[in-house]
């Protein structure tokens, strides 16, 4: 139980070496050992998607992986998909513009999932987007703002009947 192992990870471009139990979840290592608390744990059974991160370019659920399983991998979290100059990436910006978040707890999972999806699928249809969003649960927004944000980031039309955010 207490036999700890060394796990090497490159997280958001930075190399880390952590000493953890083999049973420790990647989500817990990111949050507790690396203090990257943007990766949220909403269900711990792979259903809600709040903990989504990219491992070697693929969006995965950090609560379904042991850190030791991704030893040597490149991990990108929500902190890592955010530009470092104080701006937001196109999907993040669309989320703000379209009111795609309320309490914000599920938001990092949506941001990582859709950033990854839109990188891989630059020309989705409206139905493609909804299917792509279906792996993440949100309880606040009713998905209205999130779907519109995905449409905006993908260059698809947004229904006219939606109050869009404006800058002040």
């Amino acid at each position: 139980m207490s036999d700890e192992v060394v796990v090497k990870l490159n997280v958001n471009g930075r190399d880390h070496k952590v000493l953890v139990e083999p049973r420790k979840l990647l989500s817990d290592v990111l949050r507790e050992d690396l203090h990257l608390t943007g990766t949220h744990v909403g269900c711990e059974h792979g259903a809600c998607g709040a903990c989504t991160v990219m491992v070697d370019g693929a969006a995965v659920r950090a609560c379904l992986l042991f850190a030791v399983q991704v030893d040597g991998s490149k991990v990108v979290t929500v902190e890592g998909v955010t530009p470092t100059d104080g701006t937001l990436n196109p999907f993040q910006q669309a989320m703000q513009d379209c009111h795609g978040l309320q309490c914000g707890f599920c938001t990092p999972g949506f941001v990582v999932s859709m950033t990854s999806y839109l990188d891989d699928n630059p020309n989705p249809t409206d139905d493609d987007l909804k299917i792509a969003l279906s792996g993440n649960l949100c309880r606040c927004t009713g998905y209205r703002g999130i779907i519109n944000a995905a449409r905006t980031a993908a260059g698809l039309p947004v229904p006219a009947n939606a109050a869009d955010g404006s800058d002040h």
Partner: peptide, 17 residues
């Protein structure tokens, strides 16, 4: 429809739950 001031923090994983 003022854009939310709290959003950049929450969108970038810097909320504090």
């Amino acid at each position: 429809a003022v854009k939310r001031l709290e959003d950049p923090r929450l969108l970038s994983g810097h909320g504090r739950y």
